[in-house]
Computed example of a mutant assay.
Amino acid sequence: MSDFVIPPPATPSVAVAGSSARFPIRRVFCVGRNYAAHAREMGNDPNREPPFFFMKPADAVVPADGEVPYPTLTDNLHHEVELVVALGGGGSRVAPEDALALVWGYGVGVDLTRRDLQDVAKKMSRPWDWAKGFDASAPCSPLQPVDAVGHPEAGRVWLQVNGELRQQGDLTELIWPVPDIISHVSRAVALQPGDLIFTGTPAGVGALQPGDRVQGGVAGVAAFDFTMGPRPA
């Protein structure tokens, strides 16, 4: 007999490559402006200042294959391809040299952004939640365990739309690499198994239209291929 007054929601999860098992998602942290060229294209200073973070709901993560729904409330939906870190351990005030021991595996995700809503929020000094945390705003590839891919420190990060290359960078260009990101997040909140971290996107972000085919990946980690669904009526 359940003690819940309504049926509890299903646990959000993401596929694991080569397995029927799934990785449960607790929270999704995202790093802003973690590639210098992207910071510049967004009109910001790319100097190594302390990173800033925002979050997406756990159930915003959807498979980065098949059809991804085009969201409501936007005329300017942007793609941002990113390395995704999946944590199998947790802790607070984690030192950078201890951070990689918390990592279960890696994947590749797309931080979909309602850029028009974000621009309004920035001008009015309001939160970005509606711009970043909407339904299906975090398509993600199946995760690869560390045993399969190690801890990638270099590798091409890319995204193309309808065969046209839009974004290209390398993990070596991260202003804050994975151990530093984990350490910074752990100073603000206690990290837990199941947390995902989207690590930032290279330059070249741009608009997506209904029907666009979106492909991308991180060399040595994973790739994805999905199509944007129709614009909501």
Rank of each mutant, 00 (worst) to 15 (best):
V146A: 10
R22Y: 00
P139F: 15
P142T: 05
G217L: 08
F53E: 09
Y70S: 03
Q215T: 11
L196H: 01
R48K: 15
A58C: 03
D75G: 13
L174T: 08
E97A: 15
L73A: 12
A37L: 09
Q168R: 09
G194E: 01
V146R: 06
L100S: 11
V149H: 11
D225H: 11
G216D: 00
A203Q: 12
Q168V: 12
R126W: 00
N47V: 13
V110F: 05
P177L: 09
L165G: 00
G18H: 11
F29M: 12
G18T: 03
P51V: 08
L171Q: 13
I6V: 12
F29K: 12
P24G: 10
E97V: 06
M42I: 09
T201H: 06
P50F: 04
G89Q: 02
E173F: 03
G32N: 04
L117R: 14
T172Q: 08
C30W: 06
L171R: 14
R22P: 00
P230I: 05
T74Q: 14
D135G: 07
P127Q: 12
V120H: 10
N76Q: 12
H38N: 09
D119C: 00
S125G: 02
E80L: 02
P179F: 01
P193W: 01
V108C: 03
I25Y: 06
E80D: 08
L159Q: 01
L77A: 06
A203P: 03
F23H: 02
G107N: 07
P96W: 11
L196P: 08
V178N: 01
H151E: 03
G229D: 12
Q192C: 02
F198S: 04
A222G: 07
L117E: 13
R231V: 09
L159I: 04
G90M: 02
A39T: 08
F4C: 11
S2D: 03
P139E: 12
S2N: 00
R33L: 15
L83S: 09
I181P: 06
I197D: 08
Y106R: 05
V108D: 03
R48M: 04
G32S: 13
P139H: 10
S137D: 13
A58S: 12
G107A: 08
G200N: 03
R40D: 05
P12H: 13
R166L: 05
P50N: 04
A138I: 00
G155H: 11
P8N: 09
Y35I: 02
P12W: 02
V149S: 10
H151L: 07
L165M: 15
L143V: 07
P193M: 10
P193L: 10
F23M: 00
V178S: 06
G194R: 01
P69S: 14
P57V: 07
V16M: 15
H184W: 09
M124Y: 06
V14W: 02
P232M: 11
R27W: 14
W104T: 02
R156T: 15
G229E: 13
D135Y: 02
A131V: 13
A188W: 15
L159E: 05
V61M: 01
L143M: 10
E41N: 00
G133P: 07
P63K: 03
P71G: 02
G216T: 04
A15D: 15
G109Q: 10
V178C: 14
G220S: 07
